[in-house]
Amino acid sequence: MSRISVRGFAVASATAVTTVGAVVGVATGDPQHSNDLETTASGTDTLLADIPAGEQARVQSASLTQQADALSHAADTDAKRSVEEAARIQAAKDAKDKKSAAEAKEKADAEAKAKKEREEKEQVASRSASRDASSFTPKSSYTVAELKSIARQIVPASQFQCFSNIVDAESTWNYLAVNDSSGAYGLVQALPGSKMSSVAADWRTNPATQIQWGLNYMNETYKSPCGAWTFHQANDWY
């Protein structure tokens, strides 16, 4: 191997070491490393002084290429690390959001289930507390307070106010009320009044029979007295 070849190889090798070390030294902030690099670079300059100008240009070109490759590799490594970190953060966020959504759904489902069970219990309690029209002994006359008391014992508590609103609007709690125009009869103004015979034959004089028929009609036609009252408010009839 010639003197030029040996020195060229030495210069290229030293320059490569200097270049890679520079990247590492700058990145780590290691002063000692930087000093070592300067010494190595100084030695390289001495070697270059002994090499012909043409060979120096070739060696320096190779050194710059190695330096560029080292910097590019470092940049690629940093970019890859940044992408991986961003992906990790996003994955953690997605997992947290998914968990929160699942917990919110579970809570909503539990609340809906509890509400349904509560309503069913209330309905059962209302039905068990209600009396049938046939359990009331007919009287010759009734006060409004007595009529409302009978209605409270037949109509579920949760539906009583709606039922009462309809009776107030239709007959003002007069169980003998007759509509002069249509012939509608009784507390709930059944049309015709004879419809109420499906509950009992005493529909003309027994308010309990009228109340029971009215409740049945509201449940069958509007699902509940409150459903009937909503319709009544919008149409002034039911």
Rank of each mutant, 00 (worst) to 15 (best):
S2W: 00
I4T: 09
S5K: 10
S5R: 10
V6G: 10
V6L: 11
G8I: 06
S13G: 07
A14E: 01
A14L: 03
A14P: 00
A16W: 03
T18H: 05
T18D: 07
T19H: 09
G21D: 00
A22H: 06
V23K: 00
V26F: 06
G29T: 04
G29V: 02
G29F: 01
D30R: 09
D30I: 08
D30F: 03
P31M: 07
H33D: 05
H33Y: 07
T39H: 12
T39R: 12
T39G: 11
T40G: 07
G43H: 11
T44P: 05
L48V: 02
A49W: 06
P52C: 15
G54W: 15
G54S: 15
R58H: 11
V59N: 11
Q60D: 04
A62S: 06
A62W: 05
A62G: 07
S63G: 02
S63W: 00
L64M: 09
T65F: 01
T65R: 03
Q66F: 12
Q67M: 11
A68E: 13
D69G: 11
L71H: 13
L71I: 15
S72C: 14
K80F: 10
R81V: 09
E85L: 09
R88A: 10
Q90V: 11
A92Y: 09
K93T: 13
K96M: 12
D97W: 04
K98F: 02
K99N: 14
A101P: 13
A102C: 06
A104T: 11
A108H: 15
K115E: 13
K115T: 13
R118V: 13
R118K: 13
E119T: 07
K121I: 07
K121S: 08
E122K: 15
V124I: 08
A125M: 09
S126I: 02
D132R: 12
T137V: 15
P138F: 00
P138N: 12
T143E: 03
V144W: 01
L147I: 09
L147C: 01
S149C: 02
I150V: 07
I150M: 06
I150G: 01
I150Y: 00
R152W: 00
P156I: 01
P156F: 02
P156K: 12
S158E: 15
F160E: 01
F163T: 05
F163I: 03
S164D: 11
S164P: 03
N165Q: 11
V167A: 01
D168S: 11
D168E: 12
E170H: 13
S171A: 11
T172H: 14
Y175M: 14
L176P: 07
L176Q: 15
A177L: 04
N179Q: 14
D180G: 14
S181K: 06
S182D: 08
S182G: 08
A184P: 04
A184K: 04
A184Y: 01
A184H: 04
L187T: 03
V188K: 08
A190S: 04
S197W: 02
S198D: 05
A201Q: 00
T205C: 03
T205P: 04
A208V: 04
I211T: 01
Q212N: 05
Q212C: 00
W213D: 08
Y217M: 08
N219E: 12
K223C: 01
C226L: 05
G227H: 08
G227E: 07
A228I: 04
W229H: 10
F231Y: 07
H232D: 06
Q233P: 09
Y238N: 07
